[in-house]
Design a protein around this nucleic acid. Structure first.
Lengths: 143, 143
DNA sequence: CCTTGACTTGAAGTCGACTTGAACTTCTAC
DNA sequence: GTAGAAGTTCAAGTCGACTTCAAGTCAAGG
């Protein structure tokens, strides 16, 4: 497959494919200087990368586990830690969702006055008011 | 309250507070040129901002609804849309979490060969392989 | 042979939410 | 009155994951 074929199949722009290769996340077979050709397995590889990204792993972390050379070297500890992290995130997101619905529905002039809203607020933003959060990029839903 | 007091109470660095003020998200009462003094309500305001951020709103979107001048001008449509978006995100995150746990547990040499894993993968990454996602910053959990 | 379009490279630009630095002022304590 | 901590402004830097640009190369069709 050539780069545009992979791009079509995965939806990932060719610029991103080149970027991934440059970062060592995928490999292309080719004579130096010529055009890239991809083995079919690269599509699965890219799906794994997408999973890792959805899980909040950085490309560097993903590369550490899924180097295209040799068998995947899975850090099970890290995966479980990330899973736990995501579960915690889900909890907070549920509170955020409730908070938003409440804010949309509650007619109180100032939401800061509504006790149930304050409670949701605390649950949703807990941590924000204690220790600062790190940063993370999350995908938006498929449109 | 002075800026360090607000910072201590909310955990938000003073640099961020100045930034928020510059962006019009919060107000400080003060003689021009002198030090900032904050009304107590600013803490609630900041909690709302944190909620908005946790919900994935940009500071610009938050400002549109929570201008410190005058009553909040809530866009209920937008809030409900964001809530729905978050619910969809939660669904995908659950799949991601399962996927990670599976990847950590499954002894298969190549995960791409395990059918149940492939299914999770699809659910987790769905959309990534169709249309490209937008970008969004999400907070990490409180450490 | 020549055009056209897809590919190549490396470097630079983008985005949002801050942080950091430099240079300066002001408040607090001694 | 003076040190030093904490505040001020404005400009510039940071981070990750890409995208975009400029300039050049290669392959197939007419």
């Amino acid at each position: 497959m050539d780069i545009s074929e992979v791009s079509k199949r995965t939806g990932i722009p060719s610029s991103a494919l080149r970027y991934y290769e440059q970062k060592g996340l995928i490999a292309s077979l080719r004579e130096p200087g010529a055009r890239r050709r991809y083995a079919p397995g690269v599509v699965d590889q890219l799906a794994l990368i997408a999973l890792g990204q959805a899980a909040g792993l950085s490309l560097d972390e993903i590369r550490a586990m899924l180097s295209p050379y040799g068998p995947p070297n899975i850090d099970r500890q890290l995966l479980l830690a990330k899973a736990a992290e995501i579960d915690a995130l889900i909890k907070r997101l549920r509170a955020v969702s409730s908070g938003l619905r409440h804010a949309a529905a509650c007619p109180a002039p100032s939401h800061a006055e509504c006790p149930s809203f304050r409670k949701l607020l605390k649950a949703a933003a807990s941590g924000a008011l204690e220790k600062r959060w790190g940063k993370r990029r999350w995908p938006a839903p498929p449109r």
